Simulated scan of single mutants.
Amino acid sequence: MSSPADKSDPFDPLGIAAAMGEWCCLLKAAQELRNVDAEMMDTLLEANAAGPTPLGPEAAAKVRAIANLMRSLNLDPEAIRRREPETMMKLEAACLGCTERGRCARELWAGSAAGTYHEFCPNAARIDRLRRA
């Protein structure tokens, strides 16, 4: 019994068209996975905003860090969450992806984060916009 792959295409003897078709399918699948990943992140952040966090302890600590930084800058994270939920979700998402967790924790603990967050925080520009508002 022969499969479709066994039949050669007289117009594509090297199978380039078939390979390109498979490549396109893989790219579409990758895009779908990226979309699902983004939707899942939004869902997790929305669930976190609504109540107890479904995130693991490390992720929850990262999300709490942004609230602590905001408080150190005299910003009320809960008021911002109510007034601008999308902004808060973006802040938390950036915090989840941050690679400077150790420095952030040290600066927050030392009480110096308000003066140094521009050096390490991926949310610095968003926080500055909130401070000017």
Rank of each mutant, 00 (worst) to 15 (best):
S2R: 15
S3G: 14
S3T: 15
S3E: 14
S3V: 12
P4Y: 08
P4H: 05
P4F: 04
A5E: 15
S8R: 14
S8A: 11
S8Q: 10
S8V: 14
S8T: 15
D9S: 03
F11Q: 05
P13R: 09
P13C: 07
L14H: 08
G15D: 09
I16S: 08
I16G: 09
I16W: 08
A17I: 08
A18T: 07
A18L: 11
M20G: 10
E22I: 10
W23A: 15
C24F: 13
C24H: 12
C25L: 15
C25I: 11
L26K: 15
L26P: 04
L27F: 13
K28Y: 10
K28H: 09
A29H: 15
A29E: 15
A30S: 12
E32F: 09
L33T: 13
L33N: 15
L33M: 11
R34I: 11
R34H: 13
V36P: 03
V36K: 13
V36N: 10
D37L: 05
M40V: 07
D42F: 02
T43P: 01
E46C: 11
E46P: 06
N48T: 04
N48E: 08
N48P: 03
A49D: 09
A49M: 09
G51N: 06
T53K: 01
P54E: 05
P57M: 07
E58I: 06
A60K: 00
A60T: 08
A61N: 02
A61S: 12
A61W: 03
R64V: 00
R64Y: 01
A65K: 00
I66A: 02
A67C: 11
N68I: 10
L69T: 00
M70Q: 01
S72I: 01
S72P: 03
N74P: 00
L75H: 01
D76P: 08
P77D: 09
E78N: 11
E78D: 10
A79T: 10
R83L: 01
P85L: 07
P85N: 05
E86Y: 07
E86M: 10
E86G: 13
E86K: 12
T87M: 11
M88S: 06
K90V: 08
K90F: 03
L91V: 01
L91K: 05
L91G: 02
A93P: 04
L96F: 02
L96P: 00
L96M: 04
L96Y: 00
L96S: 01
G97S: 02
T99E: 12
T99K: 08
E100T: 06
E100I: 02
R101C: 07
G102H: 06
G102F: 05
G102Q: 10
C104H: 02
C104D: 01
A105D: 04
A105N: 02
A105Y: 03
E107A: 01
L108Y: 01
L108R: 00
A110Y: 08
S112Q: 12
A113H: 03
A113D: 06
A114N: 04
A114H: 02
Y117A: 04
Y117T: 04
H118T: 13
E119H: 13
F120E: 05
C121T: 04
C121M: 05
A125H: 14
R126W: 11
R126L: 15
R131P: 03
R131H: 08
A133P: 04
